[in-house]
């Protein structure tokens, strides 16, 4: 079983699926000859040719807009937005078109595609290469939003995304593109969309996270264990639709919840989890729900490590709810 990094897992999943399904095409800025700015599409042009791996002009609206036409025509486009911070010229196409086609046509025009895009801080990229803006997409009915945190899930979820009849925004934690490695089976396995994963079993406090933050939470859980606190760490993996059963089951067991996200706290994805717990799990809760998040500022450059939640901040939150 080969050991892959997350970005190698992206490449592996794309290549395997393009071999399996000739409808799958990749398009975006520098995805062809260069192999992608992070090498996620390395070697695909050589293997599949320029009808299936398209270097496009630099225009996100054109990338997503073209992908819409391709999807309607019957292809399975996988457009890449080089950094999710650049998505906004294509945001109208995603939110007003991709997400709406099936609905507005009464189910006559599904628009399946996988919008791959690296997200998140921790690479000294400044405001325009660091944001974690998943909540813009999770607030849009019609989109599926997936964020993997391991190479195995990257392959399994990207496969499911490319086989889905729904459009998927597939956000890749670029900070851990190369630092997190793991074994990936060579056979054709997949990971279902909409199902969370228990990354660590514990009975004292639930911690909900996704993407790069999952690993900060894993470190926090180790530190907590040294203090006698056992963390039930849930990797959400799919943000929309959320695996509500996994969330409620964990909180029913622990009675305490910490939610971790890189994004600004106000109206962030964690707010939805907190609201769902307040609506449906109030009688299980033994302490206030605590969110650990980025600050309610634009993403700063010099102070990025101050801005980003880390294991120490997560540990503080864990102790706060456990000692409530």
């Amino acid at each position: 079983m080969p050991e892959l990094s997350i970005v190698e897992a992206v490449n592996f999943a794309l290549r395997e699926e393009m071999r399996r399904d000739e409808r799958v095409v990749v398009l975006g800025e520098d995805v062809g000859a260069l192999g992608g700015v992070f090498r996620a599409t390395d070697g695909l042009l050589e293997e599949f040719g320029e009808d299936r791996v398209l270097d496009t002009p630099l225009a996100e609206g054109g990338i997503i807009g073209s992908a819409v036409g391709m999807a309607l025509y019957g292809l399975r486009p996988v457009p890449e937005i080089q950094f999710v911070d650049f998505v906004f010229p294509g945001f109208d196409q995603i939110v007003s078109e991709v997400a709406k086609y099936r609905y507005r046509s009464g189910g006559q025009y599904p628009c399946p595609m996988v919008i791959r895009t690296p997200y998140g801080g921790g690479i000294r990229g400044g405001h325009y290469h660091s944001q974690s803006n998943e909540a813009y997409f999770t607030h849009t009915p019609g989109l599926v939003v997936v964020i993997p945190s391991t190479p195995y899930d990257t392959v399994g979820l990207l496969r499911s995304a490319m086989r889905s009849e729904d459009p998927v925004v597939f956000m890749e934690p670029k900070r851990i593109y190369r630092t997190v490695r793991g074994e990936v089976p060579e056979e054709d396995f997949s990971v279902p969309i909409g199902v969370a994963r228990r990354a660590r079993e514990g009975g004292d406090v639930s911690v909900f996270a996704y993407g790069a933050m999952l690993h900060e939470c894993g470190r926090a859980a180790e530190l907590a264990a040294e203090r006698g606190i056992e963390v039930d760490l849930i990797d959400l993996r799919t943000l929309l639709p959320l695996d509500i059963d996994a969330v409620l089951e964990s909180v029913a067991k622990t009675g305490k919840a910490v939610i971790v996200q890189e994004a600004p706290k106000f109206c962030g994805y964690g707010a939805e989890i907190a609201a769902l717990l307040a609506e449906t799990a109030l009688l299980h809760l033994e302490a206030p729900v605590v969110r650990v998040a980025g600050f309610d500022t634009p993403f700063p450059y010099a102070l990025e490590s101050t801005y980003l939640p880390d294991a120490a901040r997560v540990l503080t939150a864990i102790e706060q709810v456990v000692n409530f």
Partner: peptide
């Protein structure tokens, strides 16, 4: 005859993508 958007001009790049797909096929 493709579903019509309320955003003026949204269909233009989509039509191009459809044409690119036709050509590729």
């Amino acid at each position: 005859f493709v579903s019509i958007s309320g955003t003026l001009g949204a269909q233009i790049a989509q039509a191009t993508g459809c044409g690119v797909a036709m050509k590729a096929r």
